[in-house]
Amino acid sequence: MKARLSVLDLSPVGGEATQAQAVRETIAVAQAAERLGYDRFWVAEHHNMRSLGSASP
């Protein structure tokens, strides 16, 4: 039986990065997860947090 693995990303905004850069990095992580055979990619949603690029879906 194959284990089904998922990735959860918060799209963090680090240092001097912008939220747009964080989202671009999240897309790159999603593409890597797909290449590696992960079953799902989740993006957490947290409103009004400047440190996260995933403030809304």
Rank of each mutant, 00 (worst) to 15 (best):
G14R: 12
L8P: 04
S11L: 14
S6C: 11
Y38Q: 09
V23T: 01
R40M: 02
S11G: 14
R24E: 06
R50C: 05
S11H: 03
A30D: 07
H47G: 09
E16R: 08
L36F: 08
E45G: 03
A20I: 06
I27Y: 02
N48A: 11
A3D: 08
G14N: 11
A33D: 05
G15E: 09
F41G: 01
E45P: 06
T26W: 00
A3M: 12
R40D: 10
D39Y: 01
A22E: 04
D9M: 10
R35P: 05
R4S: 07
A33M: 06
V29R: 12
V23R: 13
T26M: 09
A44E: 14
N48S: 14
Q21D: 13
V23F: 06
L10G: 09
Y38D: 09
Q21S: 08
R40Y: 07
A28Y: 00
A30E: 02
R50I: 11
E45D: 10
I27V: 15
Q19R: 14
A30R: 01
A32S: 12
V43D: 05
A17Y: 00
H46P: 11
Q31F: 00
R24I: 00
H46R: 12
T26Y: 00
Q31M: 09
W42D: 04
V43Y: 01
A17H: 03
A30F: 03
R35I: 04
V7P: 01
L36E: 11
E34A: 14
A30I: 05
T18E: 01
A32F: 07
R4E: 12
I27A: 11
V43E: 06
P12K: 11
H46V: 14
L36W: 13
D9I: 07
Q19A: 15
E16K: 13
I27G: 02
A33P: 05
E45L: 09
V23S: 00
R24S: 11
E45Y: 03
V23Q: 01
R4N: 13
Y38G: 03
G15T: 07
F41W: 06
E25Y: 05
A33S: 10
S11D: 06
F41S: 01
A3R: 10
T26K: 02
T18C: 09
V7R: 10
F41R: 00
H47Q: 15
E25F: 07
A30H: 06
L10M: 13
H46M: 10
G37L: 08
T18A: 00
G37R: 05
V13F: 08
V43W: 08
T26L: 09
A44T: 11
H46T: 12
A22R: 06
E25M: 07
Q21E: 15
G37E: 03
S11Y: 04
E16M: 04
R50D: 15
V23L: 14
G15W: 00
T26H: 02
S6F: 05
V23C: 05
Q19D: 03
G37F: 02
A33N: 08
A30L: 03
E45Q: 14
A17W: 05
A22V: 04
V13E: 06
R4I: 07
H47L: 14
Q19S: 13
F41T: 06
V29Y: 04
